Simulated scan of single mutants.
Amino acid sequence: MRKSWAIPLFLLVAGTASTVAVGAAGGDDAINPQSLRLQAIGDAALAKQQPAAAIDAYEAAAAVDPRNGRAFIGIAHAYEAQGLPGKAVRFYREALALDPNNLAALEGQGKALVARGARARANLNLVRIKTLCKTDCAAAKRLEVALAAPVVAPVASAEAAKPAVVKN
């Protein structure tokens, strides 16, 4: 977590801990409303192309209610917007731990794996999506398109092109 909001997050979590405990004790599977509000803030920040602010809000949402899989998917989307598919894969995995049949998480993780060059692993996600859908499935089609795209070799930031040797 980022230090800039670690203290306010602690206060937020401490203030809602009793609500979460009561909800869990009562067998209520509903996501904590405060977590949903923070998730909505993350959604708005992501829509405004502010991925860092979105990550902060989504992380707070996940801290308030760790069962909020959509918060983990939001974090993953924000990391993808920053060009960090490796971090995105981790958060899709968190969402899938909560719900292994989450089509959005399977698709997103598959696309992030493709971006990292892990096409074989992404193909496993495609097979899983097709197993879950049974009929025409938009998530499967979008992942198939990503898998069909040509492989582009990433350029490391420290990599430099060798200058051409010119003979006089």
Rank of each mutant, 00 (worst) to 15 (best):
A71I: 07
R116I: 05
G108T: 04
D99S: 13
P8R: 02
V114D: 02
A53C: 03
M1W: 02
D28F: 04
I129E: 02
Y58W: 08
I75G: 00
G42E: 08
R70H: 08
S35A: 15
V127K: 13
K134F: 08
E94L: 00
K130Q: 15
K48H: 10
I75A: 01
V22E: 13
T131R: 12
L38C: 05
N125I: 04
K130D: 13
G27M: 10
A30P: 04
A148M: 08
A61G: 12
K162Y: 01
A61R: 02
A153G: 02
R128K: 15
A60Y: 03
R70C: 00
C133A: 15
V151Y: 13
K134C: 04
V166P: 04
E80D: 15
G83V: 02
P85R: 01
K48L: 09
A71D: 10
Y58N: 07
R37I: 07
R93N: 14
L38G: 01
G26T: 14
A105V: 00
A14S: 12
K111L: 10
K167L: 12
A78S: 15
V13Q: 04
D43P: 02
G26C: 05
A52R: 12
K134N: 10
R93Y: 01
A112N: 08
L103D: 11
F91R: 00
A61V: 06
L12C: 06
H77Y: 11
G69L: 09
V166T: 13
C133R: 08
S157G: 06
A164P: 05
E59L: 13
G42H: 06
R128L: 06
S4W: 00
A139Y: 09
E59D: 13
G86C: 04
I73V: 15
I55F: 02
P8E: 08
Q49S: 14
K87T: 00
A40G: 12
L84F: 04
A140Q: 10
V89S: 03
R119Y: 05
N68C: 12
P100H: 11
E144T: 10
V166W: 06
G74E: 06
F10D: 12
V114E: 03
A160M: 10
K3D: 12
A61L: 09
A52E: 15
G27Q: 11
A61T: 08
F10K: 12
L38P: 03
A95P: 07
A24S: 10
R70K: 14
A25W: 12
A105M: 01
S157F: 05
A160S: 13
Q49E: 15
G74C: 08
K48D: 15
V64W: 02
D28R: 08
V152Q: 11
A45V: 01
G27P: 10
L12T: 09
Q109M: 14
A105Q: 00
I129A: 04
N123F: 03
Y79Q: 13
L126I: 06
L12K: 03
P66R: 05
V64R: 05
K111C: 03
E80L: 06
G27S: 10
Y58R: 09
G74H: 07
N101I: 02
R128M: 07
A78P: 06
A44T: 11
I31K: 07
P150K: 09
A76R: 02
N102F: 10
R121T: 08
L84I: 01
A120Y: 00
K141T: 14
A30S: 15
L143C: 09
P163F: 04
A97E: 12
L96G: 05
A105F: 00
L103M: 13
D65W: 09
G69T: 03
A95N: 03
A112M: 06
G83R: 03
Q49G: 07
I129W: 01
